[in-house]
Amino acid sequence: MIEAIGLTKRYGSTVAVDNLSFTVRSGRVTGFLGPNGAGKSTTMRMILGLDRPTAGSVLIDGKPYQELRHPLRTVGALLDAKWVHPNRSARNHLRWMAAASGLPAGRVDEVLDQVGLTSVANKRAGGFSLGMSQRLGIAGALLGDPKVLLFDEPVNGLDPEGILWIRRFMQDLAKQGRTVLVSSHLLSEMALTAEDLVVIGRGRLISQGSTADLIGGATQNTVLVRTPQAQHLGNALAHKGFQVESKPDGSLVVSGASSDQVGDVAASCGVVLHELSPQRGSLEEAFMQLTGDSVEYQSSEVAAR
């Protein structure tokens, strides 16, 4: 279990993480979601004791990282697949990690096999493709057979096969009862991988809960109506308390109503309908809705909307 309590990180006048509190439960994959620059990586570095929080704390199974007796046997992390010396072989990279945490050298070959890098174990890590580097990073995270695992954007830049592999891998780890925290800026990816979500924007917590609830709550279901008497129907619907938006092509988008309700209103005032279709919100909309104006580097086009 990971518990962040009032976690704050300031760099000069920039606030990267702002009074962030959340809990990550064991036995499930928790997605750590937010736009680029939301403070996900900074938070993960603070969880690992790499960056010192300006205020607040984060506990792993009740202890700060610095007080863990066997850090690599408790927490495994892949924050950046490029954190390897390019002239060192994959095996040597894992060998020093194993030695530093007092793990038997035999673990190195076990994890290499687990991620499928045995055949390139003696090759320089600098020559690895992104997918291979990610696998090496995951091997490093698994080295101490830890109960808690952190992955920062693990599928970024991977091909579909690699994405699928990582997704299954993380779900397997969670099924074994481990705590798995995976960050991403893609809700669509998290919807497939994570059961729980912690959503942040501009360093602040936006919401926390199960993935299904968050997506359900954030995607607005609307009804699209086309009718020659748009004005008339619009007024009638607005009178009933539904929100109506007129589109440039003359159609109406009704929110807060089911298609049944819209049909009933149309019938009661004798309006002819050419189209009546329920619209399901997309994950992207849900994400925009959740994070809203908390995108740090907003393009002016989005801002103008």
Binding site: R45, L48, G49, L50, P71, L72, V75, A77, L79, D80, K82, W83, V84, H85, P86, H93, M97, A100, S101, G140
Partner: peptide, 10 residues
Amino acid sequence: FGTIRGTYQA
């Protein structure tokens, strides 16, 4: 190369 972070994790 960032290996110091792995070192400090251990």
